[in-house]
Simulated scan of single mutants.
Amino acid sequence: MTRRRILITGASSGLGAAMAREFAARGRDLALCARRVTNLEELRAELLAAHPGLTVAVRGLDVNDHDAVPKVFDELRAELGGLDRVIVNAGLGKGARLGTGRADANLATATTNFVSAMAQAEAALRIFREQRSGHLVLVSSMSAVRGLPGPKAAYAASKAGLSALGEGLAIELRGTPIKVTTLQPGFIATDMSARAGDARLVTPLDKGVNSMVAAIERESVRANVPEWPWRVLGFVMPLLPRAVMARMG
C-alpha cells in the first residue's frame, strides 16, 4: 500500500527534515510540524521548488502542549484530505546524571520523548480508527535496547518506554488495517545524535534516513536502523556485562 499523505513531527531539522525530503522525492504529500515555523516554511519552499506537484502543509507545534496536538493533527488532516501515515519523530536529547541538580533536563527529555509521543500517538490513532486505516511510526532509539548510565539514563529510559508502547500497540492492532512501526535508529549524523555516539559508529545522514524510510515503507513492526551494525548490536547489547555498559555513560 502506498501511504500518500504523511505527517511528520519534529520536521524542522535533523531526521524529520531529511525524511520529509526523501518522501517528497517519492511523490508523497506532506504535513510538517515543529516549533520552528520559519524552518518549516523554508523547507516547504525547498520541497515545492523541487517537486511542484506536491501538497506540503506546515504548522507550528510544541508537542509538549498536549491539548494542541490533536487540534494541529486535525487541521493538517483537513488540509491534506486525510492522513495515511503519522511519524512521531519529535524528540529531545538533554540529560544529566540523576541527583546532580539538573532534574529539569531529565524531566524535559522524559516528557518530550515519552509522554508527548504518547499524546501524538493518541491523536494519530483516533484519526486512524475513524478512517479504519493508517500507519503509525514511532521513532525510538537503539538506546531503548539497554539501560544506559550517567547523562544518557533518562534518554534511554524514555526511548525504552516508547519502544514498549509501540510493541503493545502492534500487538493490539495486529490483523487490522492500522499498522504500527517502531524505528530504533543508531547514531546518524544529526546535531543531536552524532554528538552522543562513537564517531566510528555514526552513519551519514542520507544513508541513515534511506534505511529509516525503507523500514517505514516495509511497515516493519520494529527495525534497528541502519541494519548494519545495529541489527547485530541489538542482539549483543543486552548480553554485555554491566562493566562494559558503564563505559557508555
Rank of each mutant, 00 (worst) to 15 (best):
S158D: 03
V115S: 05
M142F: 15
P149W: 06
G101E: 08
T181Y: 02
S116D: 06
L162K: 02
A154G: 02
R132D: 15
V180S: 10
A119E: 10
V180M: 09
A160L: 07
T176C: 06
A157F: 09
A160Q: 13
I127L: 15
L165P: 09
T181G: 01
F128H: 09
G175I: 08
T112C: 13
Q184N: 12
T109D: 03
A117S: 14
V115K: 00
L125M: 14
G150H: 13
R97H: 07
F114V: 04
L183R: 01
S133G: 10
A96F: 03
A119N: 04
F114T: 10
S141C: 08
F128K: 07
Q120A: 15
D104M: 08
G93S: 11
Q131W: 00
A144H: 12
H135F: 05
G166T: 13
T112K: 07
A110R: 00
G147F: 12
Q131F: 00
T109K: 01
S141G: 11
T112M: 13
T100V: 10
A153M: 12
V145P: 02
A153L: 13
A153I: 01
R102T: 02
T111L: 10
G161I: 02
R129K: 10
R129L: 05
A117I: 04
L162H: 02
L183V: 01
P149K: 11
G166A: 10
K94L: 15
S143N: 11
Q131P: 04
K179M: 02
L136K: 04
A90L: 05
L183E: 02
T109N: 02
G175L: 03
K152N: 13
S140Q: 05
S140H: 09
G99M: 06
G134N: 14
A156W: 02
E130Q: 14
E130K: 09
N113Q: 13
M142I: 15
L173F: 13
S143C: 12
A119S: 14
L162G: 03
L136N: 05
T112I: 09
S133V: 00
K94V: 04
